[in-house]
């Protein structure tokens, strides 16, 4: 959960100052801020559970690609605003369902973080759904770009529902709710869901990330890596 919010928060923050319109600059920064805030909570808890003297920053800035457990979807580059918002929508839909399930976790720390995050993510989903609908339905060009975003990102959707032994919840069971939610929005947006359900995998297990992640963490980790003795 922490790696997903860290990697997506970083990606979204890359839009800073260059969004299509001022209101989007503000909204994207807000989304990135929420995700970085959630990262601090999740990675903080992970470090605490690990109990080896590391903290959230050590996990964010001193691990290499193979230790990252984020979904391949969130490390995809921003490309254009259409891809960015489609990635956000697909992730938000999944994220809101996962957080709603984690809210009932027996572990009170996990339940508390999920509850706090869900409030933010409910808003993220509302906004990304509205944007996907508006741009899917907007002009011929905006429709074309949103469809291209959906087609390009669809092969990363399936990974979100692959369960492994580390999962606290059965993510596979969330797929029908995800399909219902996304079908509804994408249909209103006049977009067609690709029929090929092939999925890339390897982000969540860390077995095989895409090449994009290495470049992202090279940028992100530069200072703590270059000056390991420094406190910031």
């Amino acid at each position: 959960m922490g790696d997903n919010s860290l990697v997506l928060g970083h990606r979204v923050s890359e839009w800073c100052g260059v969004a299509p319109v001022l209101e989007e600059d503000i909204a994207l920064a807000n989304t990135a801020l929420d995700l970085i805030g959630q990262t601090q909570l999740w990675l903080g808890l992970a470090a605490e559970c690990e109990d080896k003297g590391r903290d959230a920053d050590a996990l964010a800035f001193h691990r290499d690609v193979w230790d990252f457990r984020n979904l391949l979807l969130v490390e995809q580059p921003n490309r254009d605003f259409g891809h960015t918002m489609m990635r956000q929508f697909l992730f938000d839909a999944w994220h809101s369902l996962v957080l709603a399930a984690l809210k009932s976790s027996e572990n009170s720390d996990i339940a508390a973080i999920a509850e706090k995050s869900l409030k933010e993510v409910t808003y993220h989903l509302e906004r990304s759904s509205d944007t996907v609908i508006a741009l899917g339905d907007g002009t011929e060009e905006s429709h074309k770009r949103m469809q291209a975003g959906l087609d390009r990102l669809w092969p990363y959707v399936g990974e979100m529902f692959l369960t492994d032994e580390h999962d606290l919840i059965d993510v596979t069971a969330l797929r029908p709710a995800f399909d219902e939610l996304t079908n509804d929005v994408l249909d209103t947006a006049t977009l067609s869901i690709p029929t090929d359900n092939f999925t890339h995998k390897g982000g969540k297990t860390g077995a095989r990330h895409t090449e994009h992640l290495g470049h992202m963490i090279a940028t992100m980790q530069f200072l703590p890596r270059a000056y390991p003795d420094a406190k910031w």
């Binding site: 260059v18 299509p20 319109v21 254009d80 429709h143």
Partner: peptide, 10 residues
């Protein structure tokens, strides 16, 4: 780059 987004929204 944002022109298509603004046009689409409008």
């Amino acid at each position: 780059d944002g022109a298509w987004v603004r046009d689409g929204m409008m």
